[in-house]
Design a protein around this nucleic acid. Sequence first.
DNA 1: TAAAATTTAATTTTATACAATTAAATTTAT
DNA 2: ATAAATTTAATTGTATAAAATTAAATTTTA
Lengths: 145, 145
Amino acid sequence: MNKDDLLKLDNQLCFAFYTCSREIIRQYKPYLDKLGITYTQYVTMLVLWESPKISVKGLGDKLYLDSGTLTPLLKRLEASGLITRERDAMDERSVIISLTPKGKDIQKSAYEIPEKIFCSTGLSVDEAISLREQIKKLIRQMNPK
Amino acid sequence: MNKDDLLKLDNQLCFAFYTCSREIIRQYKPYLDKLGITYTQYVTMLVLWESPKISVKGLGDKLYLDSGTLTPLLKRLEASGLITRERDAMDERSVIISLTPKGKDIQKSAYEIPEKIFCSTGLSVDEAISLREQIKKLIRQMNPK
DNA sequence: TAAAATTTAATTTTATACAATTAAATTTAT
DNA sequence: ATAAATTTAATTGTATAAAATTAAATTTTA
C-alpha cells in the first residue's frame, strides 16, 4: 500500500458517499418534479407525514439541518400551500409547522416513489436493508447524539 | 409491511446516504480548515494530485460535477494560488487546470487526513473496503457511463 | 467547403448547506 | 424578583449543486 494510494480519489469512502448521495437525489428528480418539490423538501414532507405538527427545532433534529437551511425552505413549502408556519402560543420562541390538507394530499402521489427508486438501485431487499443499517451504524458512530 | 412504512424517514436508504455524506464532510472540516479549502475543493485537489494538468471537462467527468459548480470553485482555488487556469491552445473551447508548486506542496499536509477520518468511522479496514465497493457498485448501477 | 451538429466553458437562476451573528423569549439561579 | 444563561428562529455571508441558456470553437456531413 503506497502512501499516495491513500489520497487516490478512487479509494475514498467519503467520495463514494458524496457521489452516491447526489446520484440518488438525481434519481428522485423526475418523480419529485411531478410533485413540484425538491429532494430536501421531500424529506421534510416525510417527517410531516409522520408528524403533522412539529416545531422547526424538531424538524432540524430529525433532518440534521439548521434554521439557516430550514427557514427559507419552509417559506417555500408555505408558498406552495403544503404547510403553514405559526408561532407557538406556549413558547413564542418556537415556530410550529403544520401540514395543510394539500400537503397531506400529495402523500398519495408519493407512495409509488420509494418503490421506483428501489428498482433503479438494482439491489435486493436484503442488500438494501443491510446497506441502510451499515450506514445508520456509521452515522451513529460519527455523530453520537 | 404497512404501506406507510415505505415513506418513513427512518426506512429511507436515500436519507441514510444523504445524512452520512454530510456527516463525513463535517468530519473533514477541521482538517480542511487548516489547509484553507472546502470539501469539494479537497476532492478537486485529489484529482489534481493524480493529474497535475487536466481540463475542466476532465475534472467534471471524474468528480461528476458540471461547469456551473466547477468554474466558480476553480476561480477560488486560483485566487488561493493552488492552481492556474488557461485556455488550451490546441482547442480553445477547453480550459486547462494546472497544479501550482503551492498546490502540490499542500499535499504533504493532506497525507494524514484519510487516516484521521478512517479512525472516526470506527470501521475495520475490511468493513471500510467492503462498504466502499458496495457503494461504488450502486453508483455504477444508477449511472452507467 | 459551407451549413449543421456537437463540444466546451461560462453565466444565470434557484435552492440548498452551514457557520456565525443577532434578537427575542424562556428558564435557571441567586 | 431579577440578572445570567439558555433556547429558538431568523438573518447574513460564503460555498456548493444543478438546470437552463449563451457563446465560442471545433467537428461532421451533405
